[in-house]
């Protein structure tokens, strides 16, 4: 098996274990490239069907194109879609005009997710994080327990070996299932090209710039690029020496911002 096939097949195995071992599974969907790869892998794992709901945590700061893509892809993949917004935070006026990015991310993403968890009582969430995105993500497990408060106990993670995972959520908590952990950014793009997976066109260069990672529009910045096709993006990534999330302001707001966000339940 080639490298991409091996990654794909391992991810499919993780999907199947999660679907079988948990009662109530949900997959957050950002509409970004990684979460579209997840949908593709889920359909491969389950004979063409996505057998659990997808959750879009709508920060209300998504790029307009992302909403359009969401509605199109929901039909294309036959998805059961849930959309949730932290209405309370919106009412309190939390937003990028008035608040720092770490606070807004916490309110509109992490707390919104926690509200949805309270509402639906999922015992597992399938997420698209990868080890190469951030040093704290590098230390993750494929099955990563979260407490009732959503916290990640990175000091005492369960052992994970021989294809055996932590399949029991802590009391009141849930387990994050992370099928893309071993993939790199380049793997994702090469797989998208090989499989022909639909993704938003914001990833491709327009007027000398493209988005390498997509989040809320006020704090997500395009990088200089002329890569306007899949081939060009892949060629560009082979040569790049800057990090993928360099354009995501909330990661760099303060030292260890990412670790602090993640310990509180951010993806």
């Amino acid at each position: 098996m080639d490298h991409l096939t091996r990654l794909e097949q391992t991810s499919i195995h993780i999907f199947r274990e999660a679907y079988r071992c948990f009662r109530n599974v949900c997959m957050p969907w950002s509409m970004g490239k990684d979460s579209n790869v997840l949908i593709w892998l889920a359909r491969k794992a389950f004979a063409g069907k996505v057998p659990f709901p997808l959750l879009h945590i709508d920060t209300t700061y998504e790029f307009p194109e992302m909403y359009a893509f969401r509605d199109w892809a929901t039909k294309e993949h036959g998805i059961e879609l849930l959309v949730r917004i932290n209405e309370d935070a919106i009412r309190r006026g939390v937003g990028y005009a008035t608040h720092d990015p770490v606070t807004v991310t916490h309110e509109l993403k992490t707390l919104a997710l926690r509200q949805a968890l309270d509402e639906f009582k999922w015992d597992a969430l399938i997420t698209g994080i990868r080890r190469d995105e951030d040093p704290t993500r590098a230390k993750e497990r494929h099955f990563s327990p979260r407490s009732a408060e959503g916290a990640w106990d990175y000091k005492d993670q369960p052992p994970e070996f021989w294809g055996q995972f932590a399949t029991t959520p802590p009391p009141g908590g849930h387990v994050r299932v992370q099928p893309l952990l071993e993939w790199t950014e380049l793997d994702i793009w090469e797989y998208i090209r090989r499989e022909g997976i639909p993704i938003p066109t914001l990833y491709f260069a327009r007027d000398g710039k493209r988005f390498r990672s997509l989040g809320c529009h006020p704090i997500t910045h395009p990088v200089p690029s002329t890569a306007d096709t899949l081939d060009a993006v892949i060629d560009e990534l082979r040569l790049t020496r800057t990090s993928e999330r360099a354009g995501r302001a909330q990661d760099h707001h303060e030292r260890n911002a990412m670790q602090k966000l993640r310990a509180k339940g951010f993806m």
Partner: peptide, 15 residues
């Protein structure tokens, strides 16, 4: 990269 690790100078988890 974890703060705790830098303070204690040891690796807590596999990376």
């Amino acid at each position: 990269a974890l703060l705790e690790e830098q303070e204690q100078n040891i690796t807590i988890d596999t990376t």
